[in-house]
Design a binder for these strands. Structure first.
Lengths: 334, 334
DNA sequence: CCCAAGTTTGCAACCGGTTGCAAACGCGTA
DNA sequence: TACGCGTTTGCAACCGGTTGCAAACTTGGG
C-alpha cells in the first residue's frame, strides 16, 4: 500500500542504498543524488517505515512509560511533560496503564514484544518487583518518583522522602503547631513510609509528639476526605501534614464540612504542589516536588542507559521546597 | 541480543515456520510440535518480535491517539479509559501531544512512520484540518468529541452540542433564572460554537434574552476565573452556563471572592461532569457527557474501520443529561 | 493392504529497510 | 595524459518474522 524505498529508487534512477542513505543522518550521499531522491520521494509521498528500520537496525525509538496513577491529576502534568520531553529527543512513549494490573509479567512481555529501548517506571506506589521485573528482562529501567533504595540497583530519579518528611515537621513546628497529625498516602507506598519516618525523626529530635498517623487508601480526594473525617471524629488536632495535595484537598473539605476554619482552627500542609494547589478554593501551602526536573533527568538517564549500557548511571535526588500559600498560619518571630 | 525464531526452531528440532505457527492464532500445528516449541521457547525466554511481525504482515497494533488538552484533568479520565479499552483489544495507543504544535504535518508524518492502523483524534479544540490531515494520508480516522459536521466525511463520535446547549437553557429557565450569561470555552472550538447556538435558539424560543456571552481563552481554571471577573465587573447576572466544569470552577471562585453566595446570589451550570465536579468545595450541577460510551464507541469504530476499510462507518452521537448538585437553586413548581 | 482426503510440515520468497565491502567515480597534481 | 586519493555508489546479505505451495505424513474406509 504505502510507497517503499524501491519505488523511490526506481523513480529517482538510483539504487535502494542511495535512497536509504539520503534518509539516514550522517550517511555519505552526493548533493546531486540527494536532490534527485528527495524530489522523487516528495512526488510519491514517501514516508520511511520505522518498523522496517527498527528491524534492520535492531533498535527502536520506543520507551516504555509505566504508570498506575491515572486518578490523580498530577499525573496528567507528569504525562504532558514526558510526552513532550520524549518528543523533543525523537523518542516515543509506549504507555502501560497498570491501574488494573497485578501481574508484572504481562506488561514486561508486552514491552519486550515491542522491543522498547528502555523503560521509565513513573510511580511510587508499585511493589518493588515491578521495576525489577523489567530490569530482569535485560531492558534498561529507571524508576522515577521511586525510593532510592539499597535493595535493588535500579537507578532512581526523585526526591529524598525522608528529608521531605523532616522539612514538613520543621515547617509546622516553626509555626508553633503543637498537635500535629500525619495523613499519609497509601500505607504500602515507599514514599509514604519514608516521609513519615523522616517526619517522626524530626519531631522527636525537637522533643515533640506526633498526635496521630493515618493513611489514605489511595491517592484520591475521596480517600483523603474519608480519612480526615475518621481522624476528626476521634480527636482534634491543630495541623495536618498530608502525603499528597489531592488527599489534602479532600481532607480540607472534610474539615470545613465540620465547621472548621482553615487556617484559624486547623492548618494543612500538602505535598507535590500540583497545579490545583493554587486554586483559590484551596490555596494550599505545600511542599513542592520539582516534577519537571525529575522528568527531564529521568529521560536523560534512560537515554544514557540506552546509548551506553555499560556506563555508570547514578540515581539523582532533587530538593523540595515549601510553597507558602494560605493553609498554614504565618511564622511568628516572638 | 534477543532470542529469535531460528534459535527456538533449532532447539525444538523443527522448522522456523513451525515456530511461527505455534505463535500465531489459528495456524495449523500438531499438538506434539506445539508442545516441543513451547518448551524450547520457555527455556530460551523467547518473545516474538512485534516489529518483525508487523513488517511481514504489513499491519501494526498501533493506534494513534491525538490530543491537545493536557491541562484539563478530564483528559486524564479520557486517557485512562482509552489506554485500558485499547489494551483489552490488544491494541496500543501511540500518543501525540499536540499542546505546543501548530503544524499537523509533523504529527501525520510521525504516525505514518510508525504505520499506525488508525488514528483517534480526541479533542474538540483543534482546527478542522488536523483531523482531515490524517484522513488525507489515507489512514482511517475517527474524531472523538468532535463536531458532527457536514464539511468533512470523517466519522465523529460525540454529543449533539446544539442539543446540549438547548438543554442548558431549559435547565436554567425551568429554575426561573432570568439574567443568564454564557461563559464558553475557547471561541474557536466547534463545541463552543454549537453549544452557544443551541443555547441561544432555546432562549429565544422561550422569549428570553441572553444577558451576556463571553469566552474563556482556554479550558482552564484560570481562564474561567479571569473571564468571570471581567463579566462581574461589568454587570450582574443570576446564573452562568459554563462551557466546561474546569472553567466553571474558576468562575465560581471568582464569584465567591467577590462575596457572592452560590447558589443564593448566583447559579452555575457546568459541562462534562468530570470527577472533580463532585468535590464538596464545588458540588457542581452540570451537564454530563457520557465519556465512557464515547470512548468505547470511538474504539469500536476505529477498529471496524481498520478491519473493513470499505464498510459503512457512521458517526455516533450520545445524549447528555443534567446531574443535579448544589450550584443551582431547585426547580419550583409554582 | 491400498488409496483418497485431510493435516501437518518445510522450503523459499517476501516484508522494507540497513550496511560492509569493493568497484566506480571525481578531482587535483605531476 | 596518467596517477593517487578521497567520495560516492551499488551489490548483496541480513534483520526476524509470515505465508503460499507442494511434499510428507495421518487416518479411515473399502
Amino acid at each position: 500500500m504505502a510507497v517503499t524505498l524501491k519505488e523511490v529508487a526506481a523513480k529517482a534512477g538510483v539504487s535502494r542504498s542511495a535512497v536509504s542513505r539520503t534518509f539516514t543522518a550522517g550517511a555519505s550521499v552526493s548533493a546531486k543524488t540527494r536532490r534527485k531522491v528527495e524530489e522523487a520521494a516528495r512526488e510519491l509521498g514517501y514516508t520511511p517505515s520505522l518498523i522496517a528500520r527498527s528491524l534492520a537496525t535492531n533498535r527502536t525509538k520506543l520507551i516504555g512509560l509505566v504508570a498506575n496513577n491515572f486518578q490523580n491529576p498530577i499525573f496528567l502534568e507528569v504525562f504532558d511533560l514526558y510526552t513532550q520531553a520524549l518528543q523533543e529527543r525523537g523518542l516515543r512513549p509506549l504507555i502501560v496503564n497498570l491501574t488494573n494490573e497485578t501481574d508484572p509479567d504481562a506488561s514486561v512481555q508486552m514491552l519486550r514484544q515491542y522491543r522498547v529501548g528502555g523503560v521509565v517506571v513513573a510511580t511510587s506506589t508499585l511493589p518493588e518487583d515491578f521495576a525489577s521485573a523489567f530490569a530482569g528482562a535485560n531492558v534498561p529501567v529507571v524508576h522515577a518518583f521511586g525510593r532510592h533504595g539499597e535493595t535493588s540497583n535500579i537507578p532512581v530519579v526523585g526526591i529524598d522522602n525522608r528529608a521531605c518528611g523532616a522539612l514538613a515537621a520543621e515547617t509546622l513546628l516553626q509555626r508553633r503547631y503543637r498537635s500535629i497529625a500525619v495523613l499519609g498516602g497509601p500505607q504500602s507506598a515507599t514514599s509514604t513510609i519514608d516521609r513519615i519516618a523522616g517526619f517522626k525523626d524530626a519531631m522527636s529530635a525537637a522533643g515533640q509528639p506526633v498526635a496521630d498517623i493515618r493513611f489514605a487508601t489511595n491517592y484520591s480526594y475521596y480517600a483523603g476526605r474519608e480519612a480526615m473525617h475518621s481522624l476528626l471524629s476521634e480527636k482534634s488536632v491543630d495541623a495536618v501534614f498530608c502525603g499528597d495535595d489531592l488527599i489534602c484537598m479532600g481532607a480540607m473539605d472534610a474539615a470545613r464540612s465540620r465547621g472548621l476554619n482553615i487556617p484559624r482552627d486547623i492548618g494543612f500542609l500538602g505535598f507535590n504542589d500540583m497545579d490545583m494547589a493554587r486554586w483559590e478554593a484551596y490555596a494550599l501551602t505545600t511542599i513542592r516536588q520539582p516534577t519537571r526536573d525529575i522528568i527531564q533527568a529521568s529521560i536523560d538517564l534512560i537515554a544514557a542507559m540506552v546509548s551506553e549500557p555499560d556506563g555508570e548511571h547514578p540515581s539523582r535526588l532533587f530538593d523540595c521546597t515549601v510553597v507558602e500559600r494560605k493553609t498554614l498560619k504565618p511564622v511568628t518571630n516572638s
